[in-house]
Nucleic acid binder design. Structure first.
Length: 212
DNA sequence: CACTACAAGAATCAGTCCAT
DNA sequence: ATGGACTGATTCTTGTAGTG
């Protein structure tokens, strides 16, 4: 991960009227711009894609499995704005340090009650700065969980467990515990597009889930 | 242009844990 | 004992860069 340094802000105009929250938003913006610059235009077209592997093709549909690999959403270059309704709720909770985490289309595995989890592929995470260094280290440990609050699209607060898993060689974050009820209460389905923000309320890690 | 190779990550499933 | 929730390894599909 590339951390921001003072050089990254040399072209940033600072308004003395800014609140602490405005500073945080600007920091996120600069971080996103830096990340976008780092990716070459070619990389942007298929940054995470490698090449194709030849395998015997056996239709999964034969086994009642759904077709996968839907189009991966191209993340916006600058973080989207959190809707006003969420902003109000976040402020009510005394929240700050808002960080845009990911925008993703939900897949069957994300809404499958048997799985009861929201997968957050590492490489699609817009910024990892929402975790403190100690939290990131904590998650490295096997079976280590961070308890967080999730603000559902319905504005209901739910306690969830946040973990980091290694799926093969690919690390991913997962939100677990109560995820099924979140899916149910908010009518989330596969193909639903959601945005996830993180923020801090009394140093507690919190997430805001926006349904698009 | 056609083909190959690879990485990413979605989907599945067996095993484990825990509450009833 | 049973069933639901959770875990995480494995399987396998897909997009695209690389090569001829």
């Amino acid at each position: 991960m590339d951390f921001l340094c003072s050089d990254d802000f040399k072209n940033t105009k600072v308004d003395p009227q800014w609140t602490g929250f405005d500073y945080l938003l600007k920091a996120v913006e600069v971080d996103q711009e830096k990340a976008a610059k780092k990716r070459s235009p070619i990389d942007n077209a298929g940054e995470s894609m490698g090449k194709k592997r030849e395998r015997p093709r056996r239709s999964r549909e034969e086994h009642g499995r759904k077709k996968r690999r839907a189009t991966v959403l191209v993340p916006p270059c600058s973080p989207p704005l959190l809707p006003q309704s969420f902003m109000q709720r976040v402020e009510e909770m005394g929240g700050g340090n808002l960080v845009f985490v990911i925008e993703k289309k939900l897949f069957f595995s994300d809404v499958n009650p048997q799985a009861s989890r929201l997968s957050i592929p590492f490489s699609q995470v817009q910024s990892h700065v929402f975790l403190t260094e100690s939290e990131a280290q904590h998650l490295e440990g096997k079976n280590n969980t961070i308890t967080a609050l999730l603000l559902e699209p319905s504005m209901v607060k739910t306690e969830v467990n946040f973990r980091k898993w290694m799926m093969g060689k690919s690390p991913m974050y997962v939100i677990k515990t109560a995820w099924n009820s979140i899916v149910k209460n908010n009518g989330l389905k596969d193909t639903t597009v959601v945005r996830l923000w993180s923020f801090r309320a009394d140093s507690t890690l919190c997430f805001a889930l926006q349904r698009l």
